[in-house]
Design a protein around this nucleic acid. Structure first.
Lengths: 151, 151
DNA sequence: ATGAGTGCAAAGGCTTTGCATTAGG
DNA sequence: CCTAATGCAAAGCCTTTGCACTCAT
């Protein structure tokens, strides 16, 4: 997750929540803590498993709040569960390797040159289509090493 | 959807289904017909609306079959419904503009130079991670012109 | 005290499945 | 004929919501 200083992340989270008149509560802190410590985006069952004190509904509810505050980003794959990670401005821009067999998601980054050329091209595409782009999403879909070995 | 000759698409669909010992039935043909004629990936309600003779369960069931046969591709967005389009080898490689407000999906293509450089970089990333890449997915997430105008 | 936050349980909503009927080869 | 496919209705499953309780300000 390329985590930055933990204090900074919590401070930032608290600030952004405050901007929406939301508190930085125990559950919210726990979620941010888990996501900051994770090596990949986590699905809800994984979150509940890693912190047994979390209630399912509260986790979902607070992930929505954290997403609205721009602290957490929600990833939808073809997998059954949505996955959550810290927002890109907290972790750095990256992309995902998505395994269609086990559903796991892993981060990767592109060489800066390719990335910037990509951004340029996407900017042009957005302009041509009068599309107000918020961000782009680039994923590699396939089979991870573990799943390939397992069959 | 950059559709090719309609006859070719149906023939190809029939062939691929035959390879899995599946028939090319009325419902399956109707689904392929709709997707080939659509200007964008369609969600299930849109399919049912465009062909009132389709039963919901049969549509879902056959989309699964068509996807397994490599005729149809399923797209998952943050939107409530999954969307379906013809497989890329039938329509050509392309990407998606995804509107987070209305959920609509629109196709776009990248300049060949950028696309090929991208492929090269992704190939290298896959190699480094021992990841067997099946395909990549590049989407632009934001607000479409209609939704931007509407607010 | 008083409104936000929490957690349990129940409801929602997209998708899948059971089963009896129909049709294609 | 006989198996695959269809369609209705019901069930599944992830996620959201209702509501009473708790906690922080």
């Amino acid at each position: 997750m390329a985590l930055r200083d933990a204090r900074t992340i919590h401070d930032t989270a608290a600030e952004r929540l405050a901007g929406l008149d939301q508190r930085y509560t125990r559950v919210r802190r726990a979620l941010v803590e888990l996501l900051a410590g994770a090596e990949a985006p986590l699905a809800l069952p994984q979150l509940l498993e890693r912190d047994r004190s979390l209630a399912q509904s509260s986790a979902y509810r607070n992930l929505v709040v954290l997403e609205r505050a721009g602290v957490v980003h929600r990833i939808v794959t073809a997998d059954e569960f949505a996955r959550y990670e810290l927002a890109e401005d907290l972790t750095g821009h990256h992309h995902h390797l998505i395994c269609t067999t086990c559903g796991e998601v892993r981060d990767f980054t592109m060489p800066p040159g390719v990335e910037s050329q990509l951004e340029g091209a996407l900017g042009r595409v957005a302009g041509e289509n009068a599309f107000a782009a918020d961000h782009h999403r680039l994923d590699l879909i396939g089979t991870c090493a573990d799943c390939a070995a397992a069959r």
